[in-house]
Amino acid sequence: MTAHEPAGDPAPVRSPGELFDLTGQVAIVTGASSGLGRRFGRVLHASGAHVVLAARREDRLVDLAAELNGLPGNARAVAQACDVSDEVATRALVDRAVAEFGTVDVVVNNAGVGDGKRAIDETNDRVRAMLEVNLVGLFTLSRQAATVMLANGEGSIINIASVLGLVASAPVQQAAYCAAKGGVVNLTRQLGAEWGRKGVRVNAIAPGWFHSEMTAETMFDDPAAMDFVLRETPMGRAGEADELDGALLFLASGASRFVTGITLPVDGGWTAR
Results as ranks from 00 to 15, higher is better:
223 P>H: 12
223 P>V: 09
224 A>V: 12
224 A>E: 15
225 A>D: 07
227 D>N: 13
227 D>L: 12
227 D>S: 13
227 D>K: 14
228 F>E: 15
228 F>D: 15
228 F>V: 06
228 F>H: 12
229 V>A: 07
229 V>G: 10
230 L>R: 14
230 L>I: 14
230 L>C: 13
232 E>T: 14
232 E>A: 14
233 T>I: 05
233 T>K: 00
234 P>M: 01
234 P>R: 01
234 P>D: 00
234 P>W: 01
235 M>K: 11
235 M>D: 07
236 G>T: 10
236 G>M: 12
236 G>D: 02
237 R>M: 02
237 R>A: 09
239 G>I: 14
239 G>S: 08
239 G>R: 02
240 E>P: 08
242 D>L: 03
242 D>G: 11
242 D>H: 11
243 E>S: 09
243 E>F: 07
243 E>L: 10
244 L>K: 02
244 L>V: 09
244 L>M: 15
245 D>E: 05
245 D>G: 01
245 D>A: 04
245 D>R: 01
247 A>V: 04
248 L>V: 05
248 L>D: 07
248 L>G: 07
249 L>F: 01
249 L>V: 03
250 F>N: 05
250 F>V: 01
252 A>G: 04
252 A>C: 11
253 S>W: 11
254 G>Y: 07
254 G>S: 13
254 G>E: 13
255 A>R: 05
256 S>D: 03
257 R>L: 03
257 R>A: 11
257 R>G: 04
258 F>R: 10
258 F>N: 15
258 F>H: 13
258 F>K: 05
258 F>A: 04
259 V>E: 03
259 V>I: 09
259 V>S: 06
260 T>M: 05
260 T>I: 07
260 T>D: 05
260 T>L: 06
261 G>Y: 08
261 G>F: 04
262 I>V: 15
262 I>H: 10
264 L>N: 10
264 L>G: 09
264 L>E: 11
265 P>S: 11
265 P>I: 15
265 P>M: 11
266 V>R: 08
266 V>W: 11
266 V>D: 08
268 G>E: 02
268 G>V: 00
268 G>Q: 04
269 G>H: 01
269 G>N: 02
271 T>H: 00
271 T>S: 02
271 T>N: 05
271 T>I: 06
271 T>Q: 03
272 A>P: 04
272 A>S: 14
272 A>W: 00
272 A>G: 11
272 A>D: 02
273 R>G: 10
